[in-house]
Design a protein around this nucleic acid. Structure first.
Lengths: 340, 340
DNA sequence: TTGAAAGCGGTACCAG
DNA sequence: CTGGTACCGCTTTCAA
């Protein structure tokens, strides 16, 4: 193993000079720096991680708390994970994946042993135990999602999320302005709400408020992930509100796909008979059987903001509180004016 | 931060005694041990990871090299990842997720900095650069999949995989013994083979050998993941071999689902008109629209073996070479004797 | 069975 | 602008 003193010897300088050349924390003459860099390259030197942690009190590792739920959507989950890893690497950080412990103990463990500089938490719930843990440990942390019963305070920790409430309003507004007066909603499974995922609540809040304000009729179904549940839910929707002219999807891709197939089976034309809108879509809506107008879930941006917030806190900054991302819409031709 | 000397002081012993009590590497009087354990609990002591790495030369961290391919199946990928994390945790190891660098540089980096004790590599290719890296670094490593052009040597590194060749034979045998003489195969996208994933080759090898030995007619299609490709491929299969009485799936779940739907659309009854068999299924075949007889991909077992092989090497054991898992079949009623 | 002390490989302070 | 050196917290050898 090649150490810093090997490099120092090779470059004919002291180890502190090498250390400073590496960290950039003090000025180095150009010629000295060149020699050091050459030595590093020649010897293929890489600083020892353990020594660095011990002396420097910083690990360049971020924990990613990524609990997996039985009813969760694995592809979406995976996209979040890789987006976090990507961003972390851009900042020269590695990611330790916490996906198996009950989350709290994993975080507690890596924090107590100073294995990580901070933590990014996904799958955030209203009542999230991890909030207490990171606060008590004074651990730099960023939540992807907003903890806290009220849905906007964030319980005092840094968090980032799409503004789901606004997204709910925006979805209704988009359809309302196209002339729709009765809208169906295909939502996430009821277990999401039961589990306390705030974003479903916030989305529904915005949706209902906007609908009420505009006097628009809303009917919601929340199919489970069981085979055929999505199709049945859609049928129910049509039976209950035959006058319905538009549907908002706020659910995962497989459910959307099932419903789209059902729509075809029933011989409905989109957007002539029915307008469709995918809200907070974690998937690409342009490759569906019927491409959908949508509000994309800005997953990469969310992860980037979270990682960078955590790293800012590592550098001593205060947690910035709740950061809401403004939803935007994308057009794919699945929304049109309803026939009279 | 509470350190080992705090514990030593509280227990009224030296730090070495505490260290040994923790590691169990030398005998400790019961009473002493009790006092130490009490102190640890009271102070909520957790050994500092950096210090441990530095002094002990072991990190209790495993790297997981998990490259993501555009044509890969995210849920399967995620299942591998969590299975590795699970097993690692059972052995008190944490997992550092390498999913963004070109893999080689990530492995090289964490190895050179002694950040990890070993590495588990998934998404293995015939010509896998990672093999060289771990060999040169003498890094404990286990590959999930078999590197090497010949498909069985493993290029001298530890690796584990389902015996895909045998699985190919077994799939054919199962159908042949039920009386089928013409079998269609729906395979993975052609990009898999192009990328050099050995398991597809090995499966095909076994399949073709067994079919040849039994004089069974085989027709293979390899649909891409594009929408409608699976359905079209199945139609082709039927057009090309109208006498076909059985189909083997060796592809990902969405392709299977598309074909199953097409089978229904065409009004075919399973297993009366067509027998179906899912080979090396990374998904649960009992929850499909039509439950399928299958050879399950023993994903958890593979990950367990890989992690444990890597850890054995950490402890100084030699790499055990190629470990092949014998495929087994499961019955769901989708295979029957063909009508005459 | 226990303790003292020499590192492990960096970081950062204090001198120069 | 550069060098010497006292730690960081733990493991392990050597002595007792």
């Amino acid at each position: 193993m090649v150490t810093i003193s090997d490099v120092a010897k090779a470059a004919g300088v002291s180890i502190s000079t090498v250390s400073y050349a590496l960290s950039g924390k003090r000025a180095i003459t150009a010629s000295t720096r060149t020699r050091i860099e050459a030595a590093i390259r020649e010897l293929d030197y890489e600083p020892n991680a353990g020594a660095r942690m011990l002396a420097g009190a910083t690990t360049n590792i971020l924990a990613l708390s990524a609990p997996i739920h039985a009813d969760g959507h694995l592809p979406t989950h995976m996209r979040f994970v890789t987006a976090v890893v990507d961003t972390a690497r851009k900042h020269d950080y590695d990611v330790l994946l916490l996906a198996t412990d009950d989350d709290v103990s994993g975080i507690r463990r890596v924090a107590a042993s100073s294995l990580v500089d901070g933590v990014v938490a996904m799958g955030v719930k209203n009542h999230d135990e991890r909030v207490d843990v990171v606060r008590r440990a004074a651990l730099p942390a960023a939540f992807i999602g907003i903890p806290g019963e009220d849905g906007h305070s964030g319980d005092g920790v840094a968090c980032v999320d799409l503004d789901f409430e606004l997204a709910g309003r925006l979805a209704v507004t988009t359809l309302a302005e196209a002339g729709h007066r009765s809208i169906g909603v295909v939502g996430h499974p009821p277990t999401y709400l039961a589990r306390g995922t705030g974003f479903v609540q916030r989305f529904n809040l915005g949706l209902e408020a906007e609908a009420a304000a505009r006097g628009i009729r809303i009917a919601v179904v929340s199919p489970t992930l069981a085979r055929g549940a999505a199709e049945r839910a859609f049928d129910e929707l049509l039976d209950a509100s035959p006058e319905m002219t538009a549907v908002i999807f706020h659910c995962n891709e497989p459910v959307v796909e099932s419903v789209l197939r059902r729509i075809r089976e029933r011989g409905l034309d989109v957007p002539r008979d029915l307008s469709l809108f995918a809200a907070c879509a974690s998937y690409d809506t342009s490759h569906l059987v019927i491409p959908l107008d949508c509000i994309p879930l800005p997953l990469d941006l969310m992860c980037r903001i979270a990682v960078e917030s955590a790293l800012r806190q590592v550098r001593g900054a205060d947690a910035l509180g709740v950061e809401l991302i403004t939803p935007v819409t994308e057009n794919r031709g699945s929304v049109a004016r309803p026939r009279l």
